[in-house]
Design a protein around this nucleic acid. Structure first.
Lengths: 159, 159
DNA sequence: TGCAACATGTAGCTCAGGCTACATCATCCG
DNA sequence: CGGATGATGTAGCCTGAGCTACATGTTGCA
């Protein structure tokens, strides 16, 4: 089996594919985003539960997020370390100022992504479901573009 | 501090927010997708490297994916367990039939997402970067919708 | 040919995010 | 007012994905 060895590297970099470093940093970015996904999902859920029932309890969160209550408790502990929520043993969970801001931003982004998908013709249910995964990876620039697009759509009700 | 306790649950379910179970399953879906993200990224990278240089080596993969070579080696071992790649100690990494299919599907999806973002007016660089995160969460339905939209756009060069 | 340089592999750690099984706490109601 | 029931917490496990430090293979070239 022949091995171009060290030369291959050079060939790869001059190749027609996107430069390795560019992709690498995009992927690093994606991984970094992933670290925030959980926090955003929790913040959103806590905000919704609080709005709906006046408080967010671990068990309700667990049901809404589709995980066990143990996972909720441990994750909430981490969110508390990071200053997003406050909670006391055997008591409800509340968002801090910072957590509230995160929840609000997430909600808005979620809505915008859903509207965007809907505007393109994606069925409501699918839009909701896909948005759950997509929303965490939409950059501010892209979000702004979505907003412009939706605005334009609203202005010119074509078809 | 008053606690509605068991009643709260009932109130929550009759509330105006989307039903907990619906969101829970969407989030579960997202988590499931996440498990495949790494595999898709690796498959794509291996395919590109193989196309460009005739082989995919751990070090090149590491550079392209933005991780250490150790991470690559361990992940590749897992991909091999899952039947996506073949490799022998101190030798290059090759995609299996299954891995090739995954890579191809990922590439197509990636391209489509980038085109979609571009069509909406997102700058090229941002589109590439965002697509890296978004592509893994686009359902077949949404993908098909994108395709229809792009087709329609091509037909009616408006603006 | 043999060694320097580079690639690959191993050991052992961290953290996030899952889980089950079991223990403890709080509340409501008989 | 004291359980029964349900919510909360703890212990301990797993997997994935990342890392550094060190060990071992491979190979090109002096």
């Amino acid at each position: 089996m022949s091995r171009p060895a060290q030369r291959a590297k050079t060939a790869a970099r001059s190749g027609k594919t996107r430069p390795a470093e560019v992709q690498a940093s995009a992927l690093r970015q994606t991984r970094r985003e992933h670290a925030n996904e959980t926090a955003e999902d929790y913040a959103e859920a806590i905000a919704e539960l609080t709005a709906a029932t006046g408080e967010a309890r671990a068990t309700d969160l667990a049901r809404r997020l589709g995980v066990s209550h143990v996972t909720v408790i441990r994750t909430v502990a981490r969110l508390q370390r990071n200053g997003l929520v406050t909670t006391r043993p055997y008591r409800s969970i509340f968002l801090t100022e910072k957590g509230t801001r995160l929840a609000e931003a997430s909600r808005q982004r979620h809505e915008l992504v859903v509207e965007m998908l809907r505007a393109l013709g994606v069925p409501e249910a699918v839009a909701q479901s896909d948005a759950e995964g997509i929303e965490h990876h939409v950059s501010p620039e892209t979000l702004a573009t979505f907003q412009r697009f939706l605005h334009r759509q609203a202005g010119t009700p074509q078809k």
